[in-house]
Design a protein around this nucleic acid. Structure first.
Lengths: 331, 331
DNA sequence: ATGAAAGCGCTAACAC
DNA sequence: GTGTTAGCGCTTTCAT
């Protein structure tokens, strides 16, 4: 094992003091050009790398953000993570990524890890069961900003960034109406989740308030298989829907499996529209028309917000990534 | 801003020395039960969290692994990351995740970050253009083990863990043969990649050496759209293939789009088999039969290997995650 | 059973 | 321009 090069070692071999070397390496104006050169040269030869731990200990802050998500591999978080990581790297920060596995206890442990690592900030998508967020809020007292992403707690007084759930649902509903759909089967996820309730409420309201004569069937599907089942059943009946709305990618995959099984012609036999991150819809032919809720954009926005908070904006607010209709050929 | 609780503070308010408090918190046998109790109590009240940086600085090692991948959101790395993170967390380690964006320069910078963070080890999937791996190898001199994953350099003398490319291709070929396919269209990715060459060689050899009379058409498809195009063209001709082999998930998605467009009946019109991580194949009906190359398993294996190396196994070796046929209904 | 002291590598205020 | 010094929070050896 080759010991790491330190300031001490450099200063020793050069016959200079540690502080001079330190300053030279930072191109401090006080240092003479000759010394600066000498120091840099040796530093390069000996491959000096400053010890992050010493620096962090000294300065009491780190170039590290913590990110806590339920799961990494999902329809959504992978792109969120990718964009956050990129943004962080571009600004000289790194990401400590922790999975909670949707377990509040693991989430707590992860949060502790963030604290122990004295991260500069925490991004968090909470678990389905996270009700008590005091431990998150407590971080703020230690000057560690917390930004909730996507899956956010209901408690009002915290920084949140979500996709525009209501908007997305409304856009989808309006699109269906503008295509003169009369019998809509709308599939939503777990009705306990706020995201489901938001989307469902907006969807239903948009249809109702349009004044158009539309029959709306709302059903719950907690996983792809259930969504698939719903479609198979609907098509076993005599009066079939002329349009299907999918609240999420997860549901869309189930629906599309049924569509393939039934050999439905899309969009002739039924129109399909989904709320999605954008990856799944383009796997099918025709590509599925969807309202985009981008993990990428959410990541970027979250990072910007984090910077603002760190720069002093104590302003607490809820922000949204806007929803956008992306046309495929499924409607 | 509330300052963090430190040993100093605890010792001060308790009228004990720092070392006593430190030992008490570690349940050192020397410490009397009474003292131990007192210390723990106050530590809990004041929410003492040991400062990771001080510890790392002192002990010159960290509970952190670095992971460098080309991109996080992919058909493969997300599951790899998920399993590595889980494994690490269970052992008290965390993961510093860095994306190279398939850029060797960014990769170098990321590696430097790992070094500066004095990570306990590095997992890396290198970029397409990474030829010079001296900087990776140099880490080993500093007692930082490096394990290459999936996308590994050709240089022999390093720790590598891959999926069993040749085996997977062979299994796929044999499955096709056992189903008496006579005219096989096989789509492979970029032929410059070693993964492509490995799979292609094994696939062709298996077919050739079977002695069976089979017509094999090998084509290159660098992205889904190209794969889609290939199928559409093949089906525009008079003599159509009776089976399609997809080297990767990326290719499979393109192929399936064409299949939907052509309204092919699977497996009647053509059998389909792929090499895959397992997520994409189950999106379709019937589900696609595939040879599994699991990111999850690879992550687990890599972690085990890392532990072995850290425990002293200086043994350099190449390991493989074995390939496994998962039957769907597509053949 | 407890304390004193040195030191991990670095920064920065203060000399000269 | 360069050096001296103190200290970030912790561990650990050596006293007592």
């Amino acid at each position: 094992m080759k010991p790491n090069t330190t300031l001490k070692k450099l200063s020793h071999t050069l016959g200079l003091s540690i502080s001079t070397v330190s300053r030279a390496l930072k191109n401090h104006p006080d240092i003479s050009e000759a010394t600066r050169q000498k120091v840099w040269e040796l530093a390069n030869v000996l491959e000096y790398e400053p010890n992050t731990y010493a620096i962090n200990l000294r300065t009491n802050n780190s170039k590290l953000f913590g990110l806590i998500v339920p799961v990494i591999s999902s329809y959504f978080y992978d792109s969120l993570i990718a964009s956050l990581e990129e943004e962080a790297r571009l600004h000289g920060y790194s990401l400590l990524i922790l999975q909670s596995g949707d377990d509040p206890l693991v989430e707590q442990a992860n949060l502790k890890l963030c604290k122990q690592n004295r991260v500069a900030g925490v991004f968090a998508a909470v678990t389905k069961e996270t009700l008590d967020i005091t431990s998150f809020l407590k971080l703020s007292e230690n000057d560690i900003p917390v930004i909730f992403l996507d899956k956010v707690p209901t408690y009002a007084h915290c920084n949140k960034i979500c996709v525009a759930d209501a908007d997305a649902a409304r856009i989808a509903a309006e699109t269906l109406l503008s295509h003169k759909k009369k019998k809509i089967l709308a599939l939503f996820g777990n009705s306990h989740l706020s995201i489901t309730r938001e989307r469902q409420k907006a969807f239903r309201t948009s249809i109702d308030e349009s004044g158009k004569k539309v029959r709306l069937f709302i059903q719950e599907a907690n996983h792809p298989a259930e969504a698939c089942e719903r479609i198979l059943k609907a098509w076993a009946a005599t009066a079939k829907p002329d349009a299907i709305f999918c609240m999420s990618d997860e549901i869309l995959t189930g629906v599309m499996k049924a569509v393939q099984q039934l050999k439905l012609n899309i969009p002739e036999d039924a129109g399909i529209i989904a709320i999605s991150n954008g990856f799944i819809p383009q796997l099918y032919y025709p590509e599925i028309t969807y309202v985009e809720t981008s993990g990428f954009k959410l990541g970027k926005l979250a990072y910007t917000r984090m910077m603002a908070i760190m720069a002093g904006s104590s302003f607490i607010q809820q922000m949204q990534v806007d929803a956008l209709l992306v046309k495929g050929g499924s409607i």
